[in-house]
Design a binder for these strands. Structure first.
Lengths: 342, 342
DNA sequence: TTGTAGGCGTTATCAA
DNA sequence: TTGATAACGCCTACAA
């Protein structure tokens, strides 16, 4: 029968009493602030260790008005993207003594407003990492007014510091790879439907790469689909109904690409002999499936977001607007792309 | 030039003043406590809404000594397992108004002690979810003494409430599937090396399934390997060196299984004609790769962990020890297993 | 039903 | 270099 709170943890007063100094001195000593005599400091530190004293974070937060925590708002927590971003951010935050709060946000319906779900977070965290969110201007303003430092990853957001890919160039690179192999009939898997606020860089890149190769756009070859395996599967099934069927497809994420490959095989189409497939992400299983893809390092981006956020939180003032940082992407050619047959 | 903290958020006193009641009444009203006149309550709530008042969580935590947050300690944040567990737990915690703190813990070296890295967390969270950790008895005691409610997922831990698979039965099922297909030479990918504290249920199940089929154990067929794609790759390469090579392999996680399939193909071995492969997890890409596997729902387990933890946090006393909860696993037969050739 | 006031553990401002 | 002491914002006996 173990009661709760068996152990009473030492408070700053206990330490002060034991070290025969005032609480103010203890506070200064343990936090490494200046203006405390070396002898005093060692004594206090010694006592603090003996009592295994640690400042109560809540009291501390209340007193200084900062929480030393950052929140990360993610639309889909169970996916690859989220796990990479979290992993990258967590490592640097932990290193710097910040707590990481993870929060699933569900863009509800068309409005996909996420900020309302963030209410009250300006007290729980000093900073916020928005993953793959597209807040409207009013939402950004609200966020800024809340005093939270905000960084976005995955989508450039005006007035917010962001890290993004050059989606356009990356997609051009992917589709350019296909056209340079000689493909002329190329499907796109995963373009987003109309009601999003931001541009769809990957689709734009797809289009411009086709244009650059002198290929006319066929709207039938652009399949909407959510970023998931199921989404990829459905999109590919639709694509195979077109006449003539595409000899290559560009999927906007690796999961979708893998699903597309599966659909091809189910239809007795060989990859890459009958259909070339290129993805986007460089998911660790892409190598296993020998999938040609565009590599992006979401872990690195998550880490960058955390670092940038911390800088932002240090600053007293904020610049009104920022240019998004563009992270590198890279074409990784593997076995799922080849020249078209015949 | 936007200054920090442009907006001063309303405090309980502001609400009290505006509603012409005392702070105590406001506190009761907004928290839905009894003993407040209906009229008063509506008025207070009204004012609170107008001022968009939210109790400062830090002040609140300090005052009542609870943080309404739970921490989740995870060894590898970037992996599939972590993302599933986080996703499951987060949803129920958010639903109940708890914050989720995510913490990467690195079992350092042989000792793999994680508790030291948890110091100070009894102040930040009321509860802790330990993912795939095997704390020593002293660590468990320390944890209990800290007053934290603790739940483990993935490994049964004495004195702690845990949710686990019946690893033995699940592995027996997997390997039994192979033996019933007629395989006699079956490799194991991913057994753990000797210095772990707990038993290796999947290896034990492998062995007992072999015994049940009257197959003698060949130590060469048990390949140590870390739970990763690279680990699976290396293990499979070793396995293919044995004479005669196995006609089937059981990989302890899907990523390893997928890597194994890749290695087979690189060696011109067909799956399942030449080598059958069965995994463990039912990763969403398992279906895409048509991988036979043992399904477990880590999302569900994460959710269970969160719910159980909350119950534990409500209780005033704790029972001294618990039986682990066994979650269901299920054989999912797909295309990577078949009777041996010849 | 409502209000008063002390306490939660730190931090920060002034004096000393 | 140190030490009182007032915030910080909320909760909760206890009183009214």
């Amino acid at each position: 029968m173990a009661k709760r709170g068996d152990t009473t943890t030492a408070t700053i007063e206990d330490v002060a009493a034991a070290a025969q100094v005032s609480v103010a001195t203890v506070s200064r000593a343990v936090r490494g602030l200046p203006n405390v005599a070396p002898a005093t400091r060692t004594r206090v530190l010694q006592v603090a260790r003996e009592l295994s004293y640690r400042a109560d974070p809540n009291a501390s937060r209340l007193a200084k008005g900062r929480s030393n925590a950052v929140a990360m708002a993610v639309p889909v927590l169970s996916g690859w993207y989220a796990s990479q971003a979290i992993s990258g951010a967590e490592a640097v935050l932990r290193d710097c003594g910040y707590d990481l709060l993870v929060l699933g946000v569900t863009p509800d319906g068309d409005s996909d407003e996420i900020v309302p779900q963030l209410h009250g977070f300006e007290k729980r965290a000093d900073g916020l990492i928005l993953v793959d969110a597209e807040p409207a201007d009013e939402e950004v303003a609200e966020l800024a007014a809340s005093g939270l430092a905000v960084v976005t990853i995955g989508h450039a957001t005006p007035h917010l510091q962001s890290i993004v890919n050059d989606e356009l160039a990356a997609a051009e690179c992917a589709v350019g790879h296909l056209t340079s192999l000689g493909h002329r009939r190329i499907g796109l898997i995963g373009t987003v439907s109309g009601n999003r606020r931001t541009r769809d860089g990957r689709r734009d890149g797809y289009r411009s790469a086709l244009a650059a190769a002198g290929i006319e756009l066929d709207p039938e070859l652009e399949e909407v689909g959510e970023y998931s395996i199921q989404g990829g599967r459905e999109a590919m099934i639709e694509l195979l109904k077109t006449e003539p069927r595409p000899t290559a497809v560009f999927a906007v994420c690796d999961e979708m690409a893998m699903a597309a490959i599966k659909v091809c095989r189910e239809n007795n189409l060989r990859v890459p002999e009958d259909v070339s497939v290129i993805g986007f992400d460089d998911h660790e299983l892409a190598e296993v499936m020998d999938l040609t893809t565009i590599r992006q390092s979401v872990v690195a981006n998550g880490a960058w977001a955390a670092r940038t956020l911390m800088e932002l939180m240090e600053e007293e003032e904020r610049a009104p607007s920022y240019e998004p940082l563009v992270s590198a992407t890279e074409l990784v050619v593997r076995g799922t792309t080849a020249p078209p047959a015949g």
